[in-house]
């Protein structure tokens, strides 16, 4: 973990002024004097150490902290808070969890975003898991995004039921689902059934169907009803990404292949891989 702390420090240092860095160090050094006691108040004062114009600088670092973090469009304030959280990792479980409880209980929205972004850095996964599940159950969009998007903790730690709920919630709340780490690696029968039901529900409501739902539901598409919805989508597929998803689904589902007689060369000709779908917008 110390390597991670060091990585984060270096990134932060390259964005902030010396004066701001000294203020942060003063806060950090109180840790040496006072230990974990009062960490919540020091955590709350981080933003005072950075000018507003610095706080909003945007950082992109794809692989850092032994690949535990994906830093995409984070502001410096978020990154600095994550750095401070990483400083706690040497404490014993009881002290550590107590300190984190304090942070979670009194956090504002942006602090919550930093806390949930740090899930993979928490040395006690069972504690992080409880917090992660709580965050998913909540209602705040920015918190959901911090957990669901560009965060490896859910795919590495959630059990299948919670994972499936999270994925569905990501669709329901219009998240960028391609940013869900491990989305296509953790596909399962139960999620496929739920995705198929969701497709039918959207269809009944005359609402648009997210193309990725077809990919997730690929092994459950096996009756006339879903076939007619799929065919209608094929006819109305002017969007490139949608074509990719429909093409993939068609090529991986025997029932659809057998029953769709009309040829759609501009779709069947694509034959994308899951990786190409995942990276379509990158």
């Amino acid at each position: 973990m110390s390597g991670c702390t060091e990585d984060l420090k270096k990134i932060i240092q390259s964005y902030i002024t010396e004066e701001e860095y000294s203020s942060l160090l003063r806060l950090k050094n109180k840790q040496n004097e006072k230990g974990i006691v009062g960490f919540d108040l020091r955590f709350a004062k981080i933003r005072r150490a950075l000018k507003r114009s610095t706080q909003t600088l945007i950082v992109n670092e794809k692989e850092t902290c032994e690949n535990k973090l994906i830093i995409e469009n984070w502001d410096i304030l978020r990154l600095t808070r994550v750095w401070f959280i990483s400083l706690l990792s040497s404490y014993q479980k009881e002290e550590y969890c107590q300190a984190l409880d304090e942070l979670f209980e009194f956090a504002d929205v942006k602090e919550l975003v930093a806390l949930y972004s740090s899930l993979s850095l928490i040395p006690f996964p069972e504690y992080a898991l409880k917090r992660c599940e709580e965050g998913i159950r909540g209602n705040i969009g920015a918190v959901h995004e911090a957990i669901m998007e560009n965060n490896r903790f859910p795919v590495n730690h959630l059990d299948q039921t919670v994972w499936n709920q999270m994925v569905l919630k990501a669709f329901f709340t219009d998240k960028n689902v391609l940013n869900i780490q491990g989305l296509f690696d953790a596909m399962n029968a139960s999620l496929a059934r739920a995705a198929k039901d969701y497709i039918l529900e959207r269809n009944a409501a005359n609402r648009s169907i997210h193309p990725v739902l077809w990919v997730l539901a690929q092994n459950e598409l096996n009756n006339e009803r879903i076939l007619s919805v799929f065919q209608r989508e094929l006819k109305n597929s002017d969007d490139e990404f949608k074509k990719y998803c429909l093409s993939y689904t068609l090529h991986h589902n025997a029932f659809l292949k057998e029953n769709i007689k009309q040829d759609y060369p501009n779709i069947t000709g694509i034959q994308p891989t899951l990786n190409e779908i995942k990276n379509f917008y990158r």
Binding site: T56, N73, D75, A142, E145, T173, D174, K175
Partner: peptide
């Protein structure tokens, strides 16, 4: 749009 805090239901 600059303010990352002000997100609603999924879109930045």
């Amino acid at each position: 749009e600059i303010d990352q805090n002000e997100k609603f239901a999924g879109n930045s």
